[in-house]
Simulated scan of single mutants.
Amino acid sequence: MNRLTAASYVAELTDGFVGEGEPNQGIFALLLSTLHLLAAGETEMAMRAFEARLIGLAGFKPELNACSGCGEPLTETKIRFSANLGGLLCQACASAENKITVFNRGTLEVLKTLYRWKLTKLHQLKVPEILRQELSALLRAYIEYNLEKRLKTTEFLDRLYKSSPGRGTNI
Rank of each mutant, 00 (worst) to 15 (best):
M1N: 07
L4E: 08
T5C: 09
Y9K: 00
A11K: 00
T14L: 11
E20R: 08
E22F: 08
P23L: 14
G26P: 00
I27E: 02
L30D: 06
L31F: 15
L32I: 01
T34P: 01
T34F: 04
L37W: 01
L37G: 13
G41R: 01
E44A: 14
M45P: 00
M47Q: 12
A49D: 03
A58T: 07
E63D: 01
E63C: 08
L64I: 03
N65I: 08
S68Y: 03
G71P: 04
G71A: 05
L74F: 05
L74H: 00
T75I: 11
I79M: 15
R80S: 14
L85H: 03
G86L: 14
G86V: 11
G87T: 02
L88S: 03
C90G: 14
Q91F: 04
A92T: 12
A94N: 05
S95V: 11
E97F: 03
N98D: 06
T101I: 15
L108M: 04
V110R: 04
L111H: 00
K112V: 05
L114M: 05
Y115R: 00
R116Q: 13
W117I: 14
W117F: 07
K118W: 08
L125K: 02
P128D: 13
P128N: 10
E129Q: 04
Q133M: 10
L135W: 02
S136N: 15
L138M: 07
Y145D: 09
L147Q: 02
R150S: 14
K152S: 13
R159P: 00
R159C: 04
Y161K: 03
P165E: 02
P165V: 05
G168C: 05
I171Y: 14
